[in-house]
Design a protein around this nucleic acid. Sequence first.
DNA 1: AAAGGACCTTGATGCAGATCAAGAAATCAG
DNA 2: CTGATTTCTTGATCTGCATCAAGGTCCTTT
Lengths: 190, 190
Amino acid sequence: MYDLLFSNISKHIILDEREAAIVQSLFKPRVLRKRQYLLQAGDISRFENFVTKGLLRAYTVDRDGDEHIAMFAMEGWWISDMFSFLTETPATQHIDALEDSEVLHIEKPDLEKLYREVPKFDRFFRILLQNAFVANQQRVIASISETAEEQYLNFIRKYPTLEQRIPHHQIASYLGITPETISRIRKQRL
Amino acid sequence: MYDLLFSNISKHIILDEREAAIVQSLFKPRVLRKRQYLLQAGDISRFENFVTKGLLRAYTVDRDGDEHIAMFAMEGWWISDMFSFLTETPATQHIDALEDSEVLHIEKPDLEKLYREVPKFDRFFRILLQNAFVANQQRVIASISETAEEQYLNFIRKYPTLEQRIPHHQIASYLGITPETISRIRKQRL
DNA sequence: AAAGGACCTTGATGCAGATCAAGAAATCAG
DNA sequence: CTGATTTCTTGATCTGCATCAAGGTCCTTT
């Protein structure tokens, strides 16, 4: 299961054996059943998580009890409540498993140790965060400029795999539209 | 004008004199009149820009000719079309000055040189990008879960300075609502 | 100081998509 | 295998905000 992590890392930086051993020693595996929480809002997000199997989601719950999905994460993706992780304040997001899943996680003190002992991880995460920034910015633009139909069709074009694995109402919750609207869009398209 | 850049940098990393000299040699100043373009969609975004004076915006224009503001940047903030900058493909965003402004910019080859010669800049930008990621994610959640009124009130609470300096219709364009709606919200609040 | 923008307000009307409701189909747990 | 839950669909109705339109004020430029 560390293979996926190493192949992910090696896309951006090259590790020697000593460094790989450090990584292996700091990332701990964790298994999650479907529906199990990895993080509950109110708790402090103490881990950065790399998904090696399955599919997770991070979401907030508003006053009306409605869920709004901040992100999905499948194999090879990272997930956390980054604000809570950085500031060590209570999380506003829940993270749970949409399928039986496995993650490799690293605690904050260990991540700091990693940055200290293998500084090129600053570069690695800098690159990941650049990509995440771009993706998030595109999502903002889509959200303020596109119709429900455009957003949905672009979503399934961009993430065909996710669209197969996720119930439609979760996609709706990610896009900020209702399941009924998705249903009607699909009807008129088939 | 390099003072603001150095004080920004020193919030996250410490530079010795040699390193400061490298920074100073790689960042070039540029002056912009109000309404002047720093980047036009279609061109390749060749610079990462740090604002030392004034106020800029990045925005896209959709098929209907409507503008959607991706971000504002005032003194001490960074701005670019990051996707275009990273991939060296034509920009989808325009960047222009909302006030007479000054930026310090660095070209991509020089930024790569900076990473090579002063690797702690990987850390610096990693930290900036973490913060940007969090801010963007909160903006996405707001956009899919809040009413126009909530978004507007939270915006002026979060960015009181911007709200003073920017015409309302620009805020509307940032939030994905119309100037008329902002006008009506303000009416019923005063 | 005058003319032309840019910006803001207010009212009337329209509509995309939400909400409400209820049933059908698919999936899951025991 | 069976009841329960989750997911999806379809129709009827409602509503927040957009759109359209017009007038007023302020700011720039000459």
